[in-house]
Design a protein around this nucleic acid. Structure first.
Lengths: 243, 243
DNA sequence: ACCTGAACACCGTTCAAGT
DNA sequence: ACCTGAACACCGTTCAAGT
């Protein structure tokens, strides 16, 4: 009889390993994606994976990279046009990320420079460069698009299970609502405003945040980086003067 | 002789366990923080930790929670004043996070509602509520402060080792710079602008991004949520219409 | 040359046995 | 009542032995 591949199907490949890992993460959660379980899902001995993937880290990098490659490309921007293509690109990224529950964390966690990631950065950069932004301005824009403010974590509002706010997974005893009048006022208002709604309109909040960033980019372009910085008002005693 | 505690020092407590875990993560990296290694560092059998910590997840939650508790409080805002106290609070958070290399990931990863996290949310909320924001407006503001845009990852620019851009940790072969003319133009410009500088001025970029968000908040307050949303221009075919 | 079983050095966590 | 040693069910990865 002809020799068959280990899984009885087509031979392993990096892409097939990564797609299987993504499917496994979708089905059972990212924490269940181990080299051993993934090999089992592929009908293969664990060591076989190491031919297509350097190690576990490379596997997760590859999963994220595959998702980034799934972000649909955007119509060529015409000179001077940047807002719509940027909005489209980033909305596409959000679509991809939100369709895989594990992807948000994985995306924020990785620091890879794979071809797909570089390609994504290149596409974003080109939108600005073709719209007439200088290299320096585009550089600052890219930083702005990558900013994390840490006012709070977005997942505090939209937990995986849809519970809207507060009182979830509190480790040391149930907190007294009286200690958090501000949060309670906000939660009560939100509940009154959308009765029965389990959580916030995350899409709308994301869209608004994106528009704020796009406005920031427009201002950066209009007034330049140095002027942008000088409008900040008084500097806060922070990193620079704390030590 | 008098009975001594297992470590020969003061007895274990949740706080002491968490501080030890933070110190271990600072010293050897978060990936080295295991129940077993932490117990060893405390001179204690692994199982002893389970008295003060429910499980590994609870340990990491507790570490993050402890850091949040370290963010220094801010002077009481006077009515109408919100910009400076918000800036100060968030700068303080950034100071804490950036002083622990593992904290950025851990912070973005956790979805806990511990008293310290609730307290932090409460403080931020109160700044806006006392400044005269409605509960609804404050709600949207909190979402804005938690937004992640995913234009790119900030760590792409500032890798742990300080290598500025591109060509790091590329899995499948070295990429051809010719494929990424935009990125290369930006990198070349940045290198020419600050010769010898290993990476970008991350503090300045963060401060600018924070100001953009603060401007977004000011606009939200001035024009309201619905008006804010309607200024977005044409809606993109995205989540809502993609399927 | 390619593949793989067994082994190594770890994990988090349970649990019954000790005091 | 408290603590803990041994054990369980896993990990990622190495490596020498098989074909």
């Amino acid at each position: 009889m002809p020799r068959s591949t280990p899984s009885g199907k087509e031979p392993l490949s990096r892409a097939r390993v990564l797609r299987a890992a993504i499917a496994l993460a979708d089905a059972e959660g990212i924490e269940k994606v181990s080299m051993r379980r993934l090999a089992e899902a592929l009908g293969v001995v664990p060591m076989a994976l190491y031919k297509h993937v350097a190690d576990k880290d490379d596997l997760v990098d590859g999963m994220v990279d595959t998702l980034i490659g799934d972000v649909p490309p955007v119509a060529e921007p015409r000179p001077g046009k940047w807002r719509a293509p940027v909005r489209e690109t980033i909305s596409g990224t959000r679509d991809v990320i939100t369709s895989h529950p594990w992807a948000r964390r994985a995306f924020e966690t990785r620091t890879l420079r794979t071809p797909a990631v570089l390609g994504y950065m290149e596409r974003l950069s080109q939108i600005f460069l073709r719209a007439g932004f200088s290299a320096d301005l585009t550089h600052h824009v890219m930083h702005l698009l990558g900013a994390r403010i840490w006012g709070i974590s977005p997942e505090l509002f939209t937990a995986p299970d849809g519970v809207p706010m507060a009182q979830r997974r509190v480790t040391s005893g149930t907190p007294d609502p009286a200690d958090y009048p501000g949060i309670m006022a906000i939660a009560a208002d939100a509940a009154a405003r959308r009765p029965g709604a389990a959580s916030c309109d995350e899409d709308a909040e994301f869209d608004f945040a994106l528009e704020v960033i796009l406005d920031g980019i427009a201002r950066l372009r209009r007034t330049g980086w140095d002027s942008g910085r000088s409008t900040r008002g008084q500097r806060v005693p922070s990193r620079s003067s704390r030590n």
